[in-house]
């Protein structure tokens, strides 16, 4: 009994602590201050690292012995693929925060991640196609990796449409959060598609458990590009989210002003009725 009580007492306090941690940043004023401080630390590394990575990849890294210069498409394709998946992971986390803790910033973040995530997924598909044509001889094949990334693109588009589909924003947030969470099933399918099925797409060259299967002359510019693009993705998201919070404040202020004006307009009528 005593043991059960300890467990029961421990569980709400953990949930409360987790909730408090998330709600600490639900305050829009606090987020705006944090975002303003973070913005230059995300934007400048994004610009510097992306330019450095692109120049390194385009002009300084070696051509592949088999693919020739086409391998240089990798320096934009792989970061786009990484961001497409991690952006959706961010969307799924926001969906969870929205459904479980009703975190108001999570809803706004989900609205802003959608278009940016869909754009990088489109870039991943387009650059993959541009790489596939000279290497495989075709723009597109219905291979497991390509198809699962196309599904991810449609999930982003569905989320963008659903979150804006309702007159009452809260209903849109709930419906889109459910789609965001359910769609996360596609992420492991994308990751393991090249292992589970026999695909035309090559297996992963970089894994956490094994040494990379590419030359370090190619690996370093790829890493620099990936880090630079990730900073860029984060910088764009933070800027969009800050703008969304400010726009929401503007809407609230305008609504309050309209309410006050209506109340003032109705006051003389009331006094006239009393007189």
């Amino acid at each position: 009994m005593g043991r059960n009580e300890t467990v029961l007492n421990a569980t709400p306090s953990l949930a409360a602590r987790t909730g408090n941690f998330f709600h600490r940043y639900a305050n829009p004023g606090r987020f705006l201050r944090l975002g303003a401080r973070l913005q230059p630390w995300l934007t400048w590394p994004a610009i510097v690292l992306s330019i450095a990575g692109i120049v390194w990849g385009l002009f300084l890294s070696p051509a592949d012995w088999q693919q020739g210069d086409s391998v240089r498409i990798m320096y934009v394709h792989v970061p786009a693929a990484w961001l497409a998946s991690s952006g959706y992971m961010g969307l799924a986390v926001c969906s969870l925060l929205s459904l479980v803790w009703r975190h108001p910033l999570a809803d706004l973040a989900a609205v802003e991640i959608g278009p940016v995530g869909a754009s990088v997924t489109a870039i991943c598909l387009a650059t993959g196609s541009l790489w596939g044509k000279p290497m495989w001889g075709t723009w597109w094949v219905w291979d497991a990796r390509l198809t699962s990334v196309l599904v991810l693109f449609f999930l982003y588009l569905g989320h963008i449409a659903l979150i804006r589909a309702f007159d009452e924003p809260q209903r849109g947030y709930r419906a889109a959060a459910i789609l965001g969470l359910a769609g996360a099933v596609d992420l492991p399918i994308i990751k393991f598609s090249v292992q589970w099925w026999n695909t035309l797409h090559q297996p992963d060259s970089i894994t956490l458990t094994a040494a990379p299967t590419m030359s370090t002359n190619m690996l370093w510019p790829l890493l620099v590009c990936t880090v630079g693009f990730t900073f860029g993705f984060a910088a764009i998201l933070v800027a969009r989210l800050r703008a969304a919070v400010m726009e929401s404040r503007v809407r609230t202020a305008l609504a309050m002003r309209r309410g006050r004006a209506e109340a003032q307009d109705s006051e003389p009528d009331l006094s006239g009725a009393v007189a």
């Binding site: 210069d69 240089r72 934009v76 754009s119 541009l130 693009f229």
Partner: peptide, 17 residues
């Protein structure tokens, strides 16, 4: 193909930013 891939990526990054 390389020019198209880089042009598309840089163009979209500039538009989004």
């Amino acid at each position: 193909y390389i020019v198209a891939a880089y042009g598309m990526t840089i163009g979209l990054a500039v538009i989004l930013g």
